[in-house]
Simulated scan of single mutants.
Amino acid sequence: MVPSTGPFEWASTPFTMIATPKHVQNLSDTKTDEYVEAASSMAVFHNLLLRSLNTIYLQAPHVKDGDKKAFVGYAYCWYDAIDAHHTGEEQEFFPWIEEAAGEKGIMDANVEQHKIFEKGIKEYGSYLRSLKGKEKTFSGDHMRSIINSFGPPLHQHLSDEIPSLLALRKYGDKIHLNELWDKQSIGKFTLHSAATRIPFYLCNLDRTFEDGLWKDFPEVPKLAKDFMGNWVARLNGGYWKFGACTMTGVPKELYAKGK
């Protein structure tokens, strides 16, 4: 059961989650093709981005001065995550798909959508960077206004990208979508991602989503997940209290709440 957060509905608003094709098609106990698998994995990751953006939007006006430095750091993790995701798509994932299909331009519509909200996301990152050393001047209302400028078209894009991946099924076995998804450099561990990006993912990955269908997502050894959640996350420990979930993926009450 999702915990109550006063006037808020946990981290499920204002941007709603995206149903995965695997769940929609009731394929939880069925072997599926790689198009359904890859599109579903993409949806789970997109939901992580939306859920974490919700935590920032909902908590921003209620963060106390003593927590603002940590919150700014946490909020910047979202910028780092979305920037890495879309850079990875444009430089690796989409070109690889087009190369495998033998057809240029089939992913152009997705890239064009990136341009619609690019300016707003850059403003988001620039604002947070401008607060370095003066985090107490952070304005939750200003943060919300920036998110309002790009949030709706971003949500539309993250939703639209799922059927666009499913539509690639027409290329049959020419495209090994799961392999292309897995080999993106965004998914490889670096010192930076180990200290910030990975813990940010963990505390916003709801493992109860769709009746627990994604409780083992991603397929990483439990020992590695425990190490990241219990030890590496301590490097920026003040950040993760703002997450939607515990490090084990259990939904939790939002830390900064209104009255």
Rank of each mutant, 00 (worst) to 15 (best):
H85Y: 05
H46N: 12
F117L: 06
Y76E: 07
S145W: 00
V44S: 01
H46P: 00
T137I: 06
G105R: 07
T190S: 14
G66C: 06
S145P: 00
P218T: 03
D65V: 09
G102I: 09
D173E: 13
V63G: 04
Q91F: 04
T55N: 02
D141S: 13
L235F: 14
R51S: 11
K215A: 11
K252C: 03
L48F: 13
T55P: 01
G151T: 04
Y57I: 06
D211F: 01
N230Q: 14
D80E: 13
H176Q: 06
H157W: 02
F15Q: 08
G73Y: 01
E161S: 04
A194R: 09
A19I: 08
N54D: 11
Y201C: 13
H155V: 05
E34K: 08
T246D: 07
H157Y: 01
W231P: 04
S41M: 15
D33I: 01
C245A: 05
Q59P: 04
N236R: 14
R144P: 00
F209N: 00
H114N: 02
E92L: 04
A11K: 01
E9Q: 10
L235S: 09
A38V: 08
G6V: 04
H62W: 14
T137Q: 11
K257M: 15
D160K: 08
S52H: 03
P61Q: 09
G229N: 10
K183F: 07
I56E: 07
L131T: 02
Y239I: 08
I146K: 00
K222N: 12
H85E: 06
M42P: 01
E92R: 02
F209Y: 13
K31W: 08
K188R: 11
T32R: 12
S164L: 10
L154P: 02
E99K: 15
I186H: 11
I147L: 12
L254S: 05
E37C: 05
V72K: 08
L223S: 12
E179D: 13
V44E: 05
P251M: 04
G238A: 05
E34S: 07
K222D: 08
A244R: 06
H192P: 05
A167S: 09
T16H: 13
D216F: 02
I18N: 00
K119Y: 02
A256N: 08
R234E: 14
T248V: 06
S149N: 03
P251R: 06
E34Q: 15
A100Y: 02
T5E: 03
L191W: 12
E103N: 09
I97Y: 03
T16G: 10
G249F: 01
K132G: 10
L191C: 09
A84H: 09
F217G: 03
K257E: 10
T20H: 01
M107H: 05
A81H: 12
T208Y: 07
P61E: 07
N110E: 12
E123A: 11
V220I: 15
L27N: 13
V72I: 08
T16P: 02
P199Y: 04
K259M: 06
